[in-house]
Every structure is written in structure tokens, then in C-alpha cells.
Simulated scan of single mutants.
Amino acid sequence: MRITCLHTADSNIAVFENAAQELGLNHHEFRHISRPDLLAAAERAGGLTPEILEQTAQVLLALSQDCDRVLLTCSTLGAAAAVAAENTQVPVLRVDQALAEAAMKTAGKVVVLCAVETTLGPTGQLFEQTEKHPDAALEMRLVAGAWGKFKQGDLAGYWQTVAAAADAAFREGAAAVVLAQASMTGAAQFTQRGKPLTSPECGLKAVVAG
């Protein structure tokens, strides 16, 4: 199967390559396209505007012309996947859809951690709209200071900051902790209190199954 991933951070290419290897998906052909400009535009605009949504959907449509699946790995731009999917026969998935579905099956408090402010709205909306366990209680949190470290190229510091926030949530009784953005995945190896859910693992399983 030919799977094309659209990223908005170059560093996420390695994140998804590693996740695919760990899941034993090496027999599939992965192609990675990085468009940091799309996320940068959303950050400047303070969120996902109709123009950026349409631009992202057009990029996804173009990528769908020569592959079997398209996976959008950016949480801020996630809504563009559904727009693109309406105009192509090729499945176009957002990486955090499967993440939300897995998390909201949990009974108890589900804490979703975001590193960048533009992700809070789209991610919160996605999780709210996902079918959930009757006892699931959603809480969205922004990890203060994390995104600044990421933009400075301090990945280790970024992951440590996110891991500390995840451990704090587990300490406070969270039944599930979710790392909303793919770039946060590396933090899972540093947590002490529990294993957070990450989008590359959930998203890649879904794209192969779908």
C-alpha cells in the first residue's frame, strides 16, 4: 500500500518512520511531504481560517492522485482531511481521529495535552464529537512553554516539558492522558506515571486498516 503523509514539521517525518517500524508496517510504501508554511500561516492567523483550510485540502487532494491513502498528521489543520475526502475516492484521514476514538472509550477523566494554542480548538472539537464512554470526562490542557522549546529546536526540552505535564495529569487521577500532536510523541518515553496515547501509533493503525 502506498501511503502519503502530509506533515507541518520536518521532524515529524522521523517520528512516523519510527512508529511505522515499531508497528511492523515496513512492507507498506511511505512517502512524506512537509509543509511547515501551512501551520505557520495558521499560527499567524490565530487558528485555522477558511483560506488555510481550503489550501490544505487542495494539497491533500493533489497528494491523493498517486497513492492509496493520505494521512494528515497536523492537529491544527485536521478538519481539512474531511474536506479533501469528499472530493476523492482515496481515503484521506486525520491522524488524531483514531486517537480521539481510542481515548474517549476510557471511563474516567481523559486529559488531552496540546503544545500549540492553535491546536486546542480543533482538537477539543474533534474529541467532543467522538463517540464516548458514558463515564468519560474530557479536559483540554495547554502545556505552557513547550511550543517555544520546539520552535527553538530543543526537542529534548520539549519532550521533557510535555512528559512532566503528562505525569502531573496521571498524578491528579487521569484515566487516560493524550498527547494531541504528533510532535509530542517522544515525550511518552520520559513519563514516569503511565503511558500516554500518541497519534502516530493510533493514526498509522487506522490508515492501514482503512
Rank of each mutant, 00 (worst) to 15 (best):
T198G: 09
R171P: 03
G173L: 07
T56Q: 14
K149T: 04
D68H: 12
A9G: 06
T118W: 11
I33G: 07
K109S: 12
A41T: 13
S75D: 09
Q55R: 15
C5E: 08
A206Q: 15
G108L: 08
Q55H: 14
A42F: 10
T4Q: 09
L39I: 10
G121H: 08
T119E: 13
L93C: 11
G203Q: 14
Q21L: 13
V207M: 07
A144T: 07
G194Y: 02
T106G: 03
H28P: 00
L71W: 11
R35I: 04
L126K: 08
A144K: 07
S199I: 06
G24L: 10
A9C: 06
A175G: 03
L6S: 07
D66L: 10
T130G: 01
F190P: 06
N87G: 12
L155N: 04
F16V: 00
S11D: 00
P134L: 13
V95M: 15
T123V: 08
A82W: 01
R2D: 11
F127H: 00
R44K: 15
V15C: 08
V92H: 01
L142M: 09
L6D: 12
A146V: 03
C67I: 09
Q181I: 06
E172H: 04
E101K: 11
L63P: 02
A144M: 09
G121T: 14
A102C: 12
V177Q: 00
L23G: 11
V112F: 00
E54H: 07
S11Q: 06
A166I: 08
D10E: 14
I33D: 04
K132I: 14
C67V: 13
A84D: 09
A9M: 03
I52L: 06
R94L: 00
Q65R: 15
A62F: 05
K195W: 10
S64Y: 02
T49F: 01
L93R: 07
N26W: 04
A169H: 07
Q58F: 07
C74K: 06
T88I: 02
R2N: 10
V116E: 06
T76E: 10
S34R: 02
Q65K: 15
S34N: 07
Q125T: 15
E43H: 08
E131S: 14
A82Y: 01
N87P: 04
L120N: 03
G46W: 00
H133G: 05
A137C: 13
A115T: 07
D10V: 06
D167A: 01
A107L: 02
R171A: 12
L53M: 12
A169N: 02
A115E: 02
D66H: 14
W159Q: 12
L23M: 12
K151L: 11
T191N: 03
Q152G: 00
L197T: 06
T106S: 06
